[in-house]
Design a protein around this nucleic acid. Structure first.
Length: 466
RNA sequence: GGCGACGUGGCCAAGUGGCAAGGCAAGGGUCUGCAAAACCCUCAUCAGGGGUUCAAAUCCCCUCGUCGCCUCCA
């Protein structure tokens, strides 16, 4: 049994077989950097981060390329509005996006190419497509000739004649066919531009990805990913360009994540229902968002609302509850407890892999983790010692790590208060012995308001940060 | 209008032919001076209708509903 991946191209789950054994070439479409990223972007990056981590867990080495589109109409428009240089604008948002990825505990890609730094490859590809008759220059633009590409539309399941009925296609007399799309756009004065044989201009949106794939991953790749809103026209056009240029099948597996939805609608700039990444992270942890993503299928829409956020936060706490140490004075090292933990460890790992192998069914795999949590907590409640609990807790940590979840409290916490808290707890224990409950409760309340939670048990008191 | 996806308990969500995972919420209980945590117990027949099958949430058909793409979009 190996990994199966749902392939948008065939609309089926297929066995995952890479071009080179144990190596994955993965390209994921990154953002156009012209404004603040929102949590929909975060979701997409999280999905492919989880996929990458899992592939690595399963022994693959993943060459992961994600681009930044740093020259485009929207960037130019935004820069003009703000009276700033388009390249500087883009640069700023690239830095910001990189910071977001780090904040979200998303592993950096192997390489992040940018359109503006890939011009030679882009120009070479356009020229090649012209030479082969797949493209034609017209008034400084260069268009891709869709009618020349026999299987144009195969990814999105569209046919050229059907699309014309849609009537939402811009009429442009310069194009031979309404669906022809720009590989190169002539620049207006004052716009960023590069000099070429067919005129001064800039690349169209789709060509950069084709060129970057070719330059950094090769003619054929294993996984091409992105949001499902990119299927048409972006990925359709990428396939058309790349396969027309190389004459070979482009990507083996096309993987698309569903959209994040707010009150039933896709989060998008045009609707304006945005929650920025910074805004979210100012109130919740990165792992909270990650748990939300994990808890549903990556291809399905992700419901985003306060109730779901709250459930994810509580779910995280539950995962963390299993990592707590044994009860004070616990000494149960019986074979029964040990055996039930050992069995659950094996069961959990097997089921986790089985679920994740099945098109990255993280929601199912997460359920397996919660099963392990229950058994660990049962053992602890039965008085199991740390020594007995430790192996199961290690497996929980290991598998949460595959998900990219951070269970330990964020690092960098000031530990200098610990001895004082310990002393207060000690004092309070003495008060409770003397039944001075008013005082002992006061200590607990005050500590609680400072974010320190006390938990009493019959064998002693422990504390942790909320 | 075209293409596609989806509709599972109060909420989120797995499961896609053989007695419906998991999380959150809710109720009851154990423990506790109280609280918190943890543990135990309870809580759905899968939008509606028809069909195929020994057997369907799971396959087929129809109806209703929701969403996405077809224009920039993760």
């Amino acid at each position: 049994m190996g990994i199966k991946i749902y392939n948008t191209l065939t609309r089926k789950k297929e066995d995952f077989v890479t071009i080179e054994p144990h190596k994955v070439r993965m390209y994921v479409c990154g953002p156009t950097v012209y404004s603040n990223a929102h949590i929909g972007h975060a979701m997409s990056s999280l999905v492919f981060d989880i996929i990458k981590r899992y592939l690595e867990y399963r022994g693959y080495s993943v060459n992961h390329v994600m681009n930044f589109t740093d020259v485009d109409d929207k960037i130019i428009n935004r820069a003009n509005q703000q009276g700033v240089d388009p390249f500087e604008l883009a640069e700023g948002y690239i830095k910001e996006f990189r910071r977001h990825l780090a904040d979200l505990n998303i592993l950096p890609a192997t390489f992040n190419p940018r359109a503006t730094q890939e011009m030679p490859q882009i120009l070479e590809m356009i020229q090649g497509l012209i030479d082969k008759g797949y493209a034609y220059p017209k008034d400084g633009d260069v268009y891709f000739r869709v009618t020349r590409d026999e299987d144009y539309g195969k990814l999105s399941g569209r046919k050229l004649d059907e699309m014309q009925a849609g009537a939402r296609i811009d009429v442009d007399d310069r194009k031979e066919h309404p669906m022809d799309f720009a590989l190169w756009k002539a620049a207006k004065p004052d716009e960023p531009a590069w000099d070429t044989a067919w005129g001064r201009g800039r690349p169209g949106w789709h060509i950069e990805c084709s060129a970057m794939n070719l330059a950094h991953l090769g003619e054929q790749i294993d996984i091409h990913g992105g949001g499902n809103d990119l299927i048409f026209p972006h990925h359709e056009n990428e396939i058309a360009q790349s396969e027309s240029f190389t004459g070979k099948p482009f990507s083996r597996y096309w993987v698309h994540n569903g959209m994040l939805t707010l009150s039933g609608e896709k989060m998008s700039k045009s609707i304006g229902n945005l929650v920025s990444i910074d805004e979210f992270l100012s109130k919740h942890s990165a792992s909270t968002l990650r748990l939300m993503v994990l808890n549903s299928g990556y291809r399905s829409p992700l419901t985003f609302n306060d109730e779901v956020i709250g459930a994810a936060e509580k779910g995280l706490e539950r995962l963390r509850s299993a990592l707590k140490p044994a009860l004070p004075g616990a000494s149960n090292t019986s074979e029964d407890v040990k055996k039930s933990l050992d069995e659950q460890i094996k069961k959990t790992r097997d089921a986790f892999i089985e679920n994740m192998d099945d098109d990255f069914n993280s929601a199912g795999a997460l359920g397996n983790l919660f099963d392990l949590v229950r058994v660990i907590n049962q053992a602890r409640a039965d008085g199991a010692s740390d020594e007995i609990l430790k192996p199961a807790q290690a497996v929980l940590n290991e598998l949460c790590g595959v998900f990219g979840l951070i269970l330990e409290k964020e690092t960098g916490e000031d530990q200098s208060a610990a001895p004082f808290i310990d002393y207060l707890v000690e004092l309070r224990t003495e008060m409770r012995k003397q039944k001075l409950f008013a005082f002992s409760d006061q200590i607990r309340d005050r500590l609680s308001s400072m974010g320190i939670v006390l938990e009493d048990s019959k064998d002693g008191t422990t504390w942790h940060r909320a």
